[in-house]
Amino acid sequence: MRLGVGLWCLQSTAHRPRPHVRAYRELRDDARLIERLGFDGIWLSEHHFFYDGYCPALLPAAASALAVTSRLRVGTGMLLLPLQDPRRVATCAADLARRSGGRFDLGVGLGYREAEFAGKGLSLRERLPRLLRGLEVLEPAGVPVWMGGATVRSAARAGARGHPILLSGALPTAKVLDLARAHRAAWEAARRPGPAPVVGALRNVWVTDDPAEREAVLDWVRASYVLYAGLGWAVAAEGEHRKMDFQRDAGAAIADAVATTVVGSADRVVEALEELAEGGVGYVACRLMLEGAPRAAIHAVLHRLANGVLPRLRDAVAA
């Protein structure tokens, strides 16, 4: 299993303000540290017109991290493809791949905020056709593409097209495993040549043996999902998994998201990640950029993951 970290959003929030110049400098510093510690990659995330300056332009941000590293992979999790000209995205992605020695992972997603589409003169109703048309431009260009997803439909779409997927961090383990199966089944049904594309999952994990830090981490996860109440995110109900509606029932959705958190000893974290590997997940991006978490705490947990978890996961192979 490969291990990365996410999601760097370059925000200056109500509870953790900072100049954006510092946010972008810290991204470069963090990328160097994460590379030195041996992680596979770092993932960035996109939104538009939000008060905290949530990064609206992932390609230049990713380029800045790639420019100061030599081994680390840098991914977009996710670039909102319906909002951009896909030919220009393909050109930039190919340029980044060439400059970085193939270390750029272009992850693309649908987007869900009406305001982001309206601000670019688009309708939210156009998002799926625009995503599919965009993929038709990216795929022949030879650009490796990851897709985002939180539903069976999106996982199957990625699998059928032969793309790796990075699943949302708010999903319970049982749903992650359902989506991994749906991705694999759709890939097998499409009878594409070559190895199966990887299933990745963003997960809330934190290594600590300190009960006070454990309590703080769970509250940082809570605070980080309050953001999605502000953004208006929702995950549709599917099968036995109930709807997560961060806008209309924020309390329940946030509680469900916090319940996905694995916080404890390195043994506990390794056990949880091995369960995912056994269920077909080959890549985990640890969701560490939590609202309220001081930078020193994030650096401390990066070191703990690098020392106590990374070496033990190298032999875990996705089933």
Binding site: L59, A63, S64, A67, V89, T91, C92, D95, L96
Partner: peptide
Amino acid sequence: EPGQEMIAAAYAAA
């Protein structure tokens, strides 16, 4: 090509 200038600028700035 359009867009590549943003990547080039990010590399130079970083």
